[in-house]
Design a protein around this nucleic acid. Structure first.
Lengths: 243, 243
DNA sequence: CGACATGTTGAACCTCATCAACCGACGTGG
DNA sequence: CCACGTCGGTTGATGAGGTTCAACATGTCG
């Protein structure tokens, strides 16, 4: 039915869409999958575009196909805190609420598989299996959010940066295990800017920059360019991250 | 069927249990409510007792009837970070996972309505309406966790303490709106220790103590004793909290 | 080429963690 | 009954880690 994924092979947009929809309808009947496809449509957002504004009625939700979406809130003094990052196959949006307390903004150019929120909610009601999948996704996100609370609450700047790089490395490693074979060491792309990184880590660009150079001079990481990292020894990075 | 709650009236344990079960079976048929009751049993935990250990197979989950449960993780150097606080009517536990990444510990003496986790999961499968309620609860918790990320990421010590007091005040206000009528100002009990507060806010007892006395000398709060607060002017506390 | 965005580096300041002493309440045992 | 240790909380002095402000480097686009 769908082509199997071969190592290194590029996926078409519709391949990716199907893979992502399957994340929501894994154990559900094929009719659920078909209905999901029926209400889904693809859409792209330029970097910086607001996908879901905070505090306004939400019309859409969806699944990230490529790129990075940041969930943010800007506080009184103008500082922006990122409370979540969504990558390919992550769900964006908030079912069963009129307004979102946070804005979803494209951190890079983003392709998404978008649903009309009302139609998606009706589909959830009709297909408990899909709703079950969404519950599982939400529980995982909750665990991740709490992991992040741990990081923000009691880690130093160096541990924060190292932890963040590790989480990105792990994610990249999962999706494209080949990346580490090329060089013998895990390599990955950091798809966001230093300032987004700082906003996510609850610190400043300057501190992020300093910690990166510090990790670099300690030979714990190496940079091919500003956004491509190599990790020669994962265990040392893990130690820098605080476990 | 159940007695209506009158202002100031104490609830029996079974009243509370029924109220809490209803939170899970609100829109579900009465059979779901009955089945929930059938697998529920009450249990008390002494302050400090571990309700759900981290990293071990979970056997139970449940709903808090009274007291406070803290969700914690202890990191390598021995510091403890609290990633969540559960009060009466909050759900404790992690459905659909074998082990919890965090420990649930009684921060005070706690009464809970406890379910066998496997039985609870079977019930969820059988009653999509109950699972829907759990999804909504989980989504709310996710929003709360992200709100906390915001607080930890970009607020000063004073703002953290003020925000925490506000959230407790709001919670108390919702449950017992009478409390503020007695004095004309919102009054509430802070049911946890300063050290738990520090662990929740990602700071130290000393800093918490200083910020509380600072808010006190600024007449933004008043203390009847160590754990009973009065807020003469909510808007000033809100401003101290950073909005 | 100049203007602008993004990232790095340097220096000064400040918030908060740390260490230490102190206080009152409580319980225990002599 | 009082001496004592313990526990939870407050207050003080000091220093380190991180923010802030500023300059500089690099790359990109008109």
């Amino acid at each position: 039915m769908h082509s199997l994924m071969k190592p290194g092979q590029l996926l078409t947009a519709s391949d990716r869409t199907n893979l992502c929809l399957r994340a929501l309808s894994r154990r559900a009947g094929s009719t659920a999958m078909d209905e999901l496809s029926a209400i889904a449509h693809c859409r792209t957002f330029k970097a910086g575009a607001t996908i879901i504004p905070a505090g306004e009625p939400m019309q859409i939700c969806g699944i990230v196909l490529s790129g990075v979406v940041k969930l943010t809130r800007t506080i009184a003094d103008g500082r922006e805190q990122i409370v979540g990052l969504m990558f390919a196959s992550d769900f964006v949006g908030r079912a069963f609420a009129d307004t979102s307390p946070f804005a979803a903004v494209a951190a890079t150019d983003v392709d998404m598989c978008v649903f009309d929120k009302a139609a998606f909610e009706r589909l959830l009601q009709a297909h408990p299996d899909v709703e079950h999948q969404l519950l599982c996704l939400t529980l995982d996100e909750l665990d991740a959010a709490r992991e992040w609370i741990l990081l923000l609450g009691c880690k130093s700047a160096e541990e924060k940066v190292a932890s963040f790089l590790m989480s990105i490395a792990r994610r990249a490693h999962k999706q494209v295990p080949q990346s580490e074979m090329e060089t013998g060491s895990p390599a990955f792309e950091l798809p966001i800017s230093r300032s987004d990184m700082a906003a996510y880590l609850g610190t400043t660009v300057e501190t992020v920059s300093r910690q990166i150079t510090s990790l670099k001079t300690a030979n714990i990481i190496r940079l091919k360019d500003l956004h491509h990292f190599v990790v020669p020894d994962e265990s040392r990075l893990a130690r820098a991250a605080g476990q």
